[in-house]
Every structure is written in structure tokens, then in C-alpha cells.
Amino acid sequence: MLEIRDLHASVGGNEILRGISLSIRPGEVHAIMGPNGSGKSTLARVLAGHPDYEVTGGDVTYRGEDLLEMDAEVRAQKGIFLAFQYPVEIPGVNNSYFLKAALNAVRKARGEEELDAVDFLALIRQKAKLLDLDTALLSRPVNEGFSGGEKKRNEIFHMAVLEPMLSVLDETDSGLDIDALRIVANGVNALRSPERASIVVTHYQRLLNYIVPDFVHVLSDGRIIRSGGKELALELEDKGYAWLDEPGHA
């Protein structure tokens, strides 16, 4: 589904990704872990097409197409979803109005008919319930005045409505209490299917108790220094990131 080969990327002239290679097949969940500043979030933003990040080398193929050639909105229309680490507050743009525009843009790109108001309302009510999202948040401006937990839940709510093929969760767990974490994980797990894949970027192992990954990759200084199964996450939790840098483990 996603083939990343020797990806290099920089922001403001600083190289952050220094040669990432990663292969993701349909049905898989990959966790990307690593210390702060290792490039985890950069990888997520580069995949979503953030204009501040410059790809300086390598290539990325998504379902047979050159991902790096696509604008951010085209990537989203083709099924890539980034759950933001810091969801943006957008005063004056109503949450459900925005989501309807997004959903219809995605549906149009898929060759599906746009949803009418009634069907859309039924859909978002159902998804809001799944994520235990206060329906009052649907009629408020996007993320404006939402608590940290509400913002993260709203991201997963958007994801549940848009039903992406490849979801990229950028530290969605940070700042969530255990109940919210469980709800967010349920939302992600509900989308798991043999056709879809996920990349879960996280600093902590905690989230991975609820979203069990097939693969865990450890990023350090812009490179994957270690890959393994879900047990690698537990090992990291036990020993921290420092042991990876010790001789004999890298």
C-alpha cells in the first residue's frame, strides 16, 4: 500500500529525515516510536503533504502512485488521513459543515455521489456516538475552545467519518486520560480491515495496549534504527530509548 524508499526531508533547511525506508501492506498497523526530535511527526506531516516540509531525496509510492507528486488535498481524497498532533482551531468554520465539505470532496474523488443533509446527519450522529463525542461539538467552530481531549477525539471522529485507506495518527495519545485513550483506540480499531492500514506515531507504549501493532519501528535522528514486532514496544517501555544506542543493539 505504501512504499517509502530512502526518504530525506528537511524543514527550514534542517534535515530531519535522513533516509527512511518502510513498507506497509494492506491490513497492517505500524507503530513509529522514538524519542522527541527523532523525526516521527515530520514523517507523518511529510506523508500528508505539509507544505513546510521539503522532500530532498527518496520516493514514496502509495497504491502504485507517486505520493510526493500529489497536493495535500489529493492525498486526502485518495484515502490518506492525518490525525494532527496539534489540531488547528478554525474560528467561524462550523465543525459539521466542514466535515460535510471534506466528506463530499473525498466521495467525489472516489466517484461516489455526494451525501445529502439527512444522510450526512445520520452518519455523523452514529460516528459521534461511537467516539462518545458530545454532539454540541458538531455545531461549534472546528476545534475552537475544545479541550485537549476533545480535539483528539474530534480528529478520530473525522477519521471515522472519512474512512481513510491509510490513517496516520500523530501522537494522538498525548494528553489523553485512560478513558479517552480507550475511546480513541476503539475508533481506530473499528476501522481496521484487511484493506486498510495505519501508522501510529507515539512516544509511549501505552496506546499500543489498545491499538495492537503488527510492526514497531524505532526512529532516532531521522532514521529507523530498529524494527520488530509488538514486543519491541514493551521492551522500549521497560528500558527506555537509551539502550538502543548502546553498542551491540543498534
Binding site: 500528508a48 503533504g49 505539509h50 507544505p51 513546510d52 497536493d71 495535500a72 488535498e73 492525498r75 486526502a76 481524497q77 488521513f81 492525518l82 494532527f84 489540531p87 488547528v88 482551531e89 478554525i90 474560528p91 467561524g92 468554520v93 466542514f98 466535515l99 465539505a101 471534506a102 466528506l103 470532496a105 473525498v106 474523488a109 467552530p141 472546528v142 473525522h158 472519512l162
Partner: peptide, 29 residues
């Protein structure tokens, strides 16, 4: 706001529509 613009686009909304949406929200106040 470039961050807001990217947020809208990353959800699939065309750049031009995202522009209009943000500017209309500004005036909507």
C-alpha cells in the same frame, strides 16, 4: 492562517475552496 489552510486541505478540501472557507469565516464574524 497557513496551518488552518493545511488542516482543511489535509481533510480533502481543495485549496481554493479552503481559501474561500477561511475568508468567509473571517467576515462571518
Amino acid at each position: 492562517d497557513a496551518d488552518a489552510l493545511f488542516y482543511l486541505r489535509a481533510r480533502g478540501i481543495l485549496a481554493e475552496q479552503a481559501h474561500t472557507m477561511l475568508v468567509a469565516a473571517f467576515a462571518g464574524d
